[in-house]
Design a protein around this nucleic acid. Sequence first.
DNA 1: CTGTCGTGTCATACC
DNA 2: GGGGTATGACACGAC
Length: 374
Amino acid sequence: MLRLSSSNSSSINSTFGATNLTGIFIAPHVNSSSTNITSTPILPDPFSNLLEESMLDEISLLDLAMEEGFSQAQASQLEEELDSDSGLSLDSSHSPASPSSSETSCSSAASSSSTSATFSEEGAVGYSTDSEVATAEEGAVGGYSKLCRMSYQNPSQFHGLPQLDNISHNHTYNLPLSSVFAEDPELPISSGKKAMKHSKLQPPQDLYDKHSSRDERRARSMKIPFSNEKIINLPVEEFNELLAKHHLSEGQLALIRDIRRRGKNKMAAQNCRKRKLDTIINLEQGVHDLRRNKARLLKEKMEFIRSIRQMKQKMQSLYQEVFTQLRDEEGRPYPPSEYSLQYSADGSVLIMPRGVTTAEQHRKPEKKQKDKKK
DNA sequence: CTGTCGTGTCATACC
DNA sequence: GGGGTATGACACGAC
């Protein structure tokens, strides 16, 4: 006559339930059975499966939470921190080359130079110069610094990164400072550099005019009759026309080709670096988003665990309430020490005498009973 | 003095 | 095949 509970019902004996299952515990067997044990199937509980799984999972959930070392407060805090964007570790090393925005303009100023002094050499150590003639004949125009604007640079992209502002470099490539500045006694090295360094304003235009790249100096020394800007940026057709218009020596032609190649490659390198930087920024943003998402999910998990705990407590009180209202066929209450409600796997709820279990179920109910007595 | 950063250049692969 | 582009590697100056 006894319907034994399923193997896992005993484990949830003290905690099964739903938000409102009072009705299902009303003893349907009062005065209807010759035994004092109910055997009537009870309406399936729509919450049973969900709750069973939840309860069975709770331990592992809690374990997970413990494993991750997170309290709900911590999860909330983490999420807030991530919301405040502090998780994005974009350090200053990702600063753009310079905040300038104009198009490539490495040219022009060279032609205004009238300096005729010479300098010894480029100072390039590891490079094999293509245009050796140019290198050998390279004239010196001291005190020039490069002013090549990056074609890709868009300062608006970095507006949110104040640490990236005010980056200014004075690249006098491969030129010994002595030769760079020797030509202009009005620009002592230290004061000139300090003026650049400590002034957030752009240096005066005439200072820029006196700066040029190595290729510009080479072009001047080889008496190239047009600007490097044209050499580099002219379309092939116009470029060839330009070459045809002038009678140029082999050395001049070789230098011009090198200047064009280097100029193109310079812009390509700048674009390449910009893309690389963008990729890094995007990846960091992705990491930030994923971290924030993880924190949010963790927070949700904690809330679910708390909710499940509250439901269990509620079910416990409902269990007590229902059990105390049950009566046997003679109208007597069931003593809790001798009977308990069992919740079977098929959704039915049975009242069973304690200790009447299968061999497998024997231990846990006893344990539960002990716990109850505590 | 050393490490880092930005940049130009070269070599190479690819289109 | 020449020219352009993309990119890793290297060197160098600035800081």
